[in-house]
Simulated scan of single mutants.
Amino acid sequence: MKYSRMAAVASVAASIALSVGVATAVPALADPQTDAFVDSLADAGITGLDPATAAEVGHQVCPMLAEPGQQMADVAGRVSESLGRPLGPATMFTGLAITLFCPGAVASVANGESPIPLGLFGF
C-alpha cells in the first residue's frame, strides 16, 4: 500500500511537471511562411529579435511598400525604427520580408514591371 501511494504521488508530480512544461513552452508562430521568415532572419545573422515582433514588422513591409511614394530605403528606415536596429540589418530584414511576404512584387521587379499598379494613381 505504501508503494502504491508513492507511485500515485510520483504520477501526479509528473503530470504537473508536464503541464507546466507545456504551458511555458514557446509556441510556434503557426504560419509556415512566417516561421520560414523568422528562420531566414536567424540564418542571415539577424538575431535577438522577439519572433512575434519580427513577424509583425515583417508583415507590415508589403503594405508600407504599397503606400504612394514609398521606396525600399524609406521602408527600411521605418523597419529600423520599429526594431531599434541599425539601418544595415533593417535593410536585410526588409529584403527578406519582401522575398517571403511579397512574392508578387519580386516577380514584377524581375520582369521589369512596377510592383505597384501605377495606373491606379494616374500614371
Results as ranks from 00 to 15, higher is better:
85 R>Y: 06
123 F>M: 05
99 T>N: 03
96 L>K: 08
57 V>R: 02
5 R>A: 12
80 S>N: 04
63 P>C: 10
123 F>T: 02
123 F>Y: 07
101 F>A: 12
119 G>Q: 14
39 D>T: 04
38 V>D: 13
98 I>K: 05
88 G>Y: 08
26 V>T: 13
57 V>S: 04
88 G>Q: 08
71 Q>W: 05
106 V>Q: 06
40 S>I: 00
64 M>H: 09
84 G>A: 14
53 T>S: 03
91 T>F: 03
79 V>H: 10
10 A>K: 04
57 V>C: 06
73 A>S: 11
19 S>A: 15
45 G>V: 13
96 L>F: 04
80 S>G: 04
84 G>Q: 13
47 T>V: 11
38 V>K: 14
55 A>K: 06
109 V>R: 11
74 D>A: 09
7 A>W: 11
32 P>F: 10
110 A>Y: 01
95 G>A: 07
19 S>C: 13
54 A>L: 01
31 D>S: 12
112 G>H: 02
22 V>K: 10
119 G>A: 14
13 A>N: 00
76 A>Y: 04
97 A>Y: 13
76 A>C: 07
44 A>L: 03
33 Q>F: 03
123 F>H: 01
34 T>G: 14
107 A>M: 09
29 L>A: 11
30 A>N: 12
59 H>C: 00
38 V>L: 09
117 P>Q: 04
10 A>F: 03
107 A>F: 01
52 A>N: 05
28 A>S: 15
41 L>W: 04
8 A>R: 11
79 V>P: 11
64 M>I: 04
50 D>L: 04
18 L>Q: 00
102 C>T: 03
44 A>N: 05
5 R>D: 06
109 V>K: 06
76 A>S: 13
73 A>E: 11
119 G>M: 08
94 T>Q: 05
50 D>Y: 00
84 G>Y: 12
92 M>A: 14
102 C>L: 04
83 L>W: 04
13 A>Q: 02
95 G>K: 02
116 I>Y: 07
105 A>D: 15
86 P>G: 12
12 V>K: 11
123 F>P: 00
112 G>D: 05
81 E>L: 08
3 Y>K: 13
34 T>E: 15
84 G>D: 15
119 G>W: 12
105 A>K: 01
97 A>H: 10
27 P>L: 06
31 D>V: 05
118 L>E: 03
104 G>F: 01
67 E>I: 09
100 L>C: 00
73 A>Q: 10
91 T>H: 06
16 I>T: 10
56 E>T: 13
10 A>W: 03
9 V>A: 07
114 S>A: 06
